[in-house]
Amino acid sequence: MSPPRVRRAARWRRFNWAGTLGALIWLVIVVVPLYSMVSSTLQTRPEYLDNGPLALPTDPGLGSYRQVLEGDFPRYLLNTAIVTVSCAAIVIALAVTVSYVVVRNRSPWSRRTFQLFLLGLAIPSQAVIIPVYWIITELQLYDTLLAVILPTAAFSLPVSVLILVGTMRDIDEEMYESMALDGAGPARMLVQLVVPVARAGISTAGVFAALNAWNGFLFPLILTQSRESRVLTLGLYDFVGEFRVDIPALLAAVVLSIVPIFTAYLFARRQLINGLMGVGGR
C-alpha cells in the first residue's frame, strides 16, 4: 500500500468506536427530552393528548406561551429575580469578607470559623426546616420574599466560602507584602488586590448562589403562602388542576423559566470553571 493509504488505515484502526458510540447514546439521551419539551409547547392540549410528546406539531403555535405570559408568570419571574439577585449579593458580600479573614488571619479563631462553615456542608436544609420555620415566624417574616432570601443565602455560604478560600490562597504572599510596604491596610488590600485577583472565584460563588436561589423549592414551599410571594418553582402548580394537567402550558412555563438562568450561565461559564479549578488551593 502507498504511504497515504497506510496512514488512513492506521487512523481508522485508532478510531475510538466505543467512545463514539457512547457519545451518540448520550446525545440521544439529552436531545430527545429537550425535543419533547419544546415540541409539546408548540401543541395545544388536545393535540398533545392525541399525538403524544414525541410527535411533530401538526399546527405549531405559541398559544401555550401566550397563556403563560397572560397569567401570573411575570409576577413569579419578578419575585424569583429579586430572590436570586438578593441571595447572590448577600453571599458574595459575606463570603468574600469571611474568606479573606480565614486566609489572612492565622489565629485559631479564624480556623474554627472556617471549620464551622465546612460543617455546614454536611447539614441538609431538610434537616433544619422546622427551626428555620420557627425563626422566620418569630421574626414575623413569614410569607415574604425575605423569608426565602435569608435561609437560601445561608445554605449557599459554606460552598461559597470553600471556593473563595481556595481561590484566595493562590494569591502570592509577595503581593500582600508589596501593598503593605505602600501603606495599604487590610481593607485596601481586600478591595484593590483580593477582589480583582479572585474575581473568577467570586463569579463562581455568585453563580452557585444564583442557581440555588433560582431553583429553590423547599423554602418557598414552607415559608410562603400567598400568590404575591410565589416564585417560579411554585408557580408551576398553576397548571396542575384537580382533574387535569395542562402539559403544554406547564412545559412552556418550564422553558420560559430556564431561559434567564441559562443565559446567565452562558456568560459566566468561563469564570465558573476557572473558579472551581481553584477550590483546592495550594
Rank of each mutant, 00 (worst) to 15 (best):
V32A: 12
V255W: 02
V98R: 01
S64W: 05
D59L: 05
V279G: 04
V85K: 02
L49M: 13
V161H: 06
R104K: 14
R11N: 03
A23G: 04
T80I: 06
R5E: 12
Q192L: 14
V259W: 01
V165T: 13
E47W: 00
R199M: 11
S107C: 02
Q140Y: 05
A268R: 00
V255L: 12
T137K: 14
L94M: 14
T224E: 06
S226G: 08
M168L: 12
L221A: 14
R112N: 05
Y176G: 07
T44F: 01
A210G: 15
P158W: 09
G120H: 10
Q225W: 11
S99A: 15
R13Y: 01
L250H: 03
V30A: 15
W17Y: 10
A213I: 09
L190G: 11
V102K: 04
Y65H: 07
R169I: 01
D143W: 05
L150Q: 04
S40E: 04
S64G: 03
S99C: 10
V83F: 08
V32L: 15
V83A: 11
F73I: 06
M277V: 10
L250G: 04
L49S: 01
V254A: 15
P4T: 01
I25N: 00
L190M: 15
T84G: 13
L223D: 06
I171K: 11
V161A: 07
D172I: 00
L62R: 01
I261C: 06
L221S: 13
V91Y: 04
A184T: 09
N16G: 01
V191G: 07
D170C: 01
E177C: 02
L27W: 02
V101P: 00
R227C: 00
V31F: 11
G52W: 02
T58Q: 14
G22I: 01
S156N: 14
N16W: 02
G281Y: 06
Y142N: 06
N105M: 00
T263D: 00
P53F: 11
Q43A: 13
G281D: 03
R169D: 10
G280T: 11
A180M: 12
A18V: 11
R270V: 13
R104P: 01
L27Y: 03
C87A: 12
A198Q: 02
G166N: 07
V38E: 01
I135P: 00
T152E: 13
T233Q: 12
R45N: 14
E138R: 14
V195Q: 05
D143C: 05
R112A: 14
L181P: 06
G71S: 13
V101S: 13
A154S: 14
F73S: 03
M168Q: 11
A213W: 07
V240H: 02
F239V: 04
D172P: 08
V165M: 06
S178W: 00
E174Q: 14
V159N: 10
E47H: 03
V259F: 03
R282M: 09
A205P: 10
A9H: 03
L232W: 05
T263C: 11
I273E: 13
L56S: 09
A187G: 08
Y48L: 13
E242H: 07
L42K: 05
V165S: 08
N215S: 14
